[in-house]
């Protein structure tokens, strides 16, 4: 078993990926996220950040989505602990 930790999706940097474990959004946004394929167990890749720092482009289920940083903060993903963290710790 590899060591994992849970972080908001908005904390991930381009090139990183995580597996969705919880969606804390409410209302229409939550519905929309589900419709767009952001469900538990799905792997999300961070593609790039918009030139002004927001929103962020993600790839999920083979399609590309743009989410605002504050909306991505409500999606919790599980990531593998990187070796860099061990080295620093």
């Amino acid at each position: 078993m590899s060591v994992t930790k849970r972080v908001p999706l908005s904390k991930l940097a381009p090139g990183e990926k995580g597996v969705i474990v919880a969606i804390r959004s409410r209302g229409p946004l939550r519905r929309r996220l589900l419709d767009m394929g952001l469900v538990r167990g799905e792997t999300v890749f961070v593609e790039r950040v918009a030139p002004l720092g927001d929103p962020i482009e993600y790839a999920v289920k083979g399609s590309h989505l743009s989410l605002r940083r504050k909306d991505a903060a409500d999606i919790i993903v599980e990531i593998a602990e990187t070796e860099g963290v061990y080295a620093a710790g």
Binding site: R32, M36, P55, S63, H64, L65, S66, D71
Partner: peptide, 10 residues
Amino acid sequence: RHSVFVLELP
């Protein structure tokens, strides 16, 4: 202000 902005980049 509460509108959802989830955008597909086709």
